[in-house]
Design a protein around this nucleic acid. Sequence first.
DNA 1: GAGTTTGAAACT
DNA 2: CAGTTTCAAACTC
Length: 825
Amino acid sequence: MDSPENDKAATTIVTSSASTRGTRAKKIDVLPDKYQMPKTQVSRAFVPCTKKECASMASSPSGGVDEDSVDPLEVECTDSAQSESLSLMKSEGKDAGKALGGFQAALEQATQELQGKPSFEENPAETYKQGVSEMPSVVCQKDVSDLQYPPCGPSISQHAGAAHEEVLHYAPQFMAEPSQFTQENEDCSESTREALNKPAENMILLDPKGQQHCGMHRRRLQFGEAPLYNTVNGPSFWSPSNIGSSSNLPANPGDSEVLETSCQEVRANSGGRQLIGPNQPTIPFSSPRNSGYSSSTVPRPLGIGLHLNSIINAMPYGSAATGSMKSSERGCLNIEGRKLVSMPRCRQPEITTKSLGLSNVREKASASSEDGSHQNESSVTTGSLASLSSDIVKSLYVPAFCDVSFNGSISFLEFYRKKALAANDDDGCKRCNCKKTKCLKLYCDCFAAGIYCAEPCACQGCFNRPEYEDTVLETRQQIESRNPLAFAPKVVQRMTESPANSNAEDGNASTPSSARHKRGCNCKKSMCLKKYCECYQSNVGCSTGCRCEGCKNVYGRKGDYGMTEDVLRLESSFEKKLEMIASQDGFLQTELCNPHNLTPLTPSFPFSDHRKDASKSQFSARRCLPSPESNVTSLPPYGKSLVSEYSHSHDLLLKDRKKVEDISSHQELDYSNVEAVDEFSLRYDGLLDSCDLHTLPNLPSSVNSLSWRNTPTTPVAQFRGTLLNRAVNSDQKLHDILEDDMPDILKDDSTPLRAVKVSSPNKKRISPPRSSLKELGSSTSVGLRIGRKFIFQAVPSFPPLTPCADSKNNSSQNIDDPQDCSSKT
DNA sequence: GAGTTTGAAACT
DNA sequence: CAGTTTCAAACTC
């Protein structure tokens, strides 16, 4: 059974074209069917598009890579047949079967149409080029503010026509102009261009052809599109969109990463290629048909790639904290991981950008990447993601989604992946070397990372292979039942840092402040100066969560990380106020949309309640999904009307914030202290910074932050929206303010205390340092509460059993079927 | 490459 | 839940 030979035979379908290509590639390519996402699911997840559109999309680099080319089309255009499908779904939103049938039909049609069209994979370069050239350079002239209105909100009803409602029904989160939608169906060609400018693109929820709708997909993922459990699919139903939903509104690049990650996972499944093995299993996206798991047991596929994150996180912090593509990649890997989970001992380059298929992105960004300089890649600050060109950013997200949408048939992503894999050889990735655990315990880095062992591994009696999926899953379940966060990233990266900050800190190439080990290390002899220390290994500084002795972590010492009482007090006060504000309508939305620092939670198995909660929190954070309980769906996301309402609160927040900052600034901070300060600043400022896309062309930072976080609007629209700048205006300001004031606590669970404390059954390891616990207890309690309140409950780790009822726990529901939810509320 | 050290994971 | 054992990576030679 364990025979590697058999494994190879069984799993290796794709022979490495390049010598460089690792075994990994083989395994990935051969991912069992169960890992693949069912077509039906895929189709359901996407909006049908017309042939014309499909062609355009197919030809487009985005193949999904290019958002610009893809999004508009897919959004605006739909065949009549497809429209019917949508209509059907709309009319019978809760009738998954019907909807499914319609989509399926549409999918098939689209597929047929698509055939014969150049795929990106076939001729990536050409396709890409073509797509780019073809991309409409339309600028959104519409009032951006429109985007900010909640789908469920009154504003929508006012504006939206019948057609619009339909659209909303599927893409409630998007605040697009109703009028736009109505026209779309009528005239795709025209609408296409117009659509580019409009938020409407977001509305496309379902795309029969993943390929073409990759962009859309991506968007959803990145921007926290509503999960598609929605009425249509039903609770258990998984769709790529769900993945995307993991982050409804990525507040920042980090979020995006997370999204991508989950995406990646999904893709892996759908594509039948394994990127992440074990993890995925947890999420049996696996089609029901393939997996023996009942739907109920199938949590959201999102899994969020925690594992991936982990892997990524594992990368040197210089890279982790810094790493342009990497961050994105990381995101891709672990959508959720939005942060970094350090994979202490295992370096898994395969999962790096390259492995994810993002390498090409890097290439785009810079030719240097190709030289195999991983370091360079990783050297970019995650926060610096913002610094990436919009193109790069876009492409980062695309691949993963594309894969999903391709449903394994084609793959632009595949193309990248192969390339990446080929390039990976140099990495000399070191895999596990387990001898006694059969690679079924967390001792095994591969297993812990949610990936199957591969040839590079020197493990003995390995069961962490696709052939033993059942065993792996079962084991994972056991472990997760014991510790829901067992597979969660160990290191949470703070994506909040603005490029400037990152640079400043990174002056020495290390960015300790940007990430923290969730649990904290427990080093006794290494003084956190060796890789024995997980913090050090992750290139992150030790924090109060660490129980290390004699900490000398070069990335930040434990003691230095602590907060002064004053700061804590202020923080507490701030958080209280924040909470108070949060109670107000709309504010929740903001919080929910601050996933940036939340750790991606591995997809957990539903069977565990507490785990479920934990995962919820994680997912919710990531996804920025509105908390069902909070009735977010009914709440307008930063509606204009709320501006004045918030202004007062905002002032209060600003005051507190200022106090905190002042205190922090007066502290004598050494390197570590700087981090502490940073953290604080991040708490209040970081969010915005993290999402700061100043460097992105045509994308005003303010706009970015606004759209990314607060609106479901896809980046595409925003990117294109040079005009968005002015459009944002007051709403934007509001968003900025809110986000600016948003305490990390709400957006980040990175703090060891918070993160670990909540879900880990094993208090021993997870519990925060005694010293800090008491100290932080009071102060953090508020934040923690908030986090639970808005984050933990927001997203269930697995699909709800019932559409809207579940919506209670399923934010996705809210998104997808806002009206229903709103009506309930 | 073997042996040692280390600290996380697992177990009691 | 603290203490112990097991484990595999990290490290040393």
